[in-house]
Design a protein around this nucleic acid. Sequence first.
DNA 1: GTGGTCTAGACCACG
DNA 2: GTGGTCTAGACCACC
Lengths: 131, 131, 131, 131
Amino acid sequence: MRVDVDFHSDVPVYKQIVEAVEDAILSSELKEGDELPSIRKLALDTNVNPNTVAKAYFVLQSKGFVYSVSGIGYKVTKPPVNSLKDRIADVEREIEEGVKKLAKFSMDKNEIEKRMRLIIERVMSNGGEDR
Amino acid sequence: MRVDVDFHSDVPVYKQIVEAVEDAILSSELKEGDELPSIRKLALDTNVNPNTVAKAYFVLQSKGFVYSVSGIGYKVTKPPVNSLKDRIADVEREIEEGVKKLAKFSMDKNEIEKRMRLIIERVMSNGGEDR
Amino acid sequence: MRVDVDFHSDVPVYKQIVEAVEDAILSSELKEGDELPSIRKLALDTNVNPNTVAKAYFVLQSKGFVYSVSGIGYKVTKPPVNSLKDRIADVEREIEEGVKKLAKFSMDKNEIEKRMRLIIERVMSNGGEDR
Amino acid sequence: MRVDVDFHSDVPVYKQIVEAVEDAILSSELKEGDELPSIRKLALDTNVNPNTVAKAYFVLQSKGFVYSVSGIGYKVTKPPVNSLKDRIADVEREIEEGVKKLAKFSMDKNEIEKRMRLIIERVMSNGGEDR
DNA sequence: GTGGTCTAGACCACG
DNA sequence: GTGGTCTAGACCACC
């Protein structure tokens, strides 16, 4: 699992970690029973304070994505059945916001469709190298 | 100009206002010389503290999108030539992130293209009613 | 609302605060829309570090008992319909554990019933003075 | 003697073991001179690390409930005369806390008495099967 | 003034 | 080594 933290983003570091882990679980990169990287290890890897990673893991636990085994680490649970669907809906809403903005910049439908095809092409041809 | 503020978003309220005004300028909804709504009026309209609106306007001034006329209000300048292009690039990067996430959720290219067409259809057929 | 923190208890301070607030909400001492004491104020009142109170409030928010309004404070939501029932069941289970222990100490049914009546008497005659 | 360990409880595992053994002694299930299960055996039975069991036995020794016989194991001493009384007082205090909470949840005296009788009935009719 | 985030560092229970 | 809790103190956004 890759966790890239952007310290200059408005979205808090702990939420970025939460989302990265959720995505890894929802995309089946992390499966039920798998261990999360230890708090200290992920903290070192991402240059984040261990407390911040701990907060992210705590939130993930509250949301039911993982559970902690004291002295062992964090393990992932079976994700709630609807969470993938919810997450996809979220992402589509996000994309829709982007498309709306393009439309506001006086871009017509043809132009937008062309650019979207280009974007999809770029993403998919990238293979799965960063997945 | 419509300014929707999401108080639960991680992005600070003043940045949301800045972006909304920039978008209005870049989409030519606000043209050179037009007046911005007064600080107090926008504050009332959006349920935001006037100090926060003032900060947003101050940032817009620093970025060169508006200038203040004492006793009158804020007026919009000619936007820097490249700002529209930059903003479009930003939005496309944002959309690309979304597409990447869909791909991670084991969605194939056909599926993604289908959903994108639906999104574009939805946005464009919505006319310009909320633009 | 009274929050008594026992620093020597095994149960973490933040959980003691969570429970105290939940009890106040479930007993209608705090009603929908009421404000919680500010993080700093409760921290001072209870001699607890503000971060610890913040953690308790964060947990209460995750559980849906309260929500935060930035710059204002925390307000209580309408508690989930079943939470009172659940909490009563918890408490009864706790009492049952106690009764089981008394039974283990070779106390017979009559003796136990007698002591329980005494306990109830003591609690109820205490009026509502610390409620 | 039955030792049930709850790994998700806030009370430390070693304290749960201490209390279980004390209860067994105070309820005369374990009598003076009886041997405690070996550290390794109890560790296996409860899925607890042997170090943790060892710590529990060490605490029991400090409290005077058991003494170690090198090469043999741990044996129980005559429990201090007042310890049973103290323990009962502890348990009653615990029950009283529960009753207080029920009272806070706007339960009246009759209701509480009814529920207490039900609880006692349930516990006592359970025979001694888990004692 | 309010909450939100983050860091640094300590101590504990458990393996 | 693991996680869990708590403290102290800093900076930010917002009222």
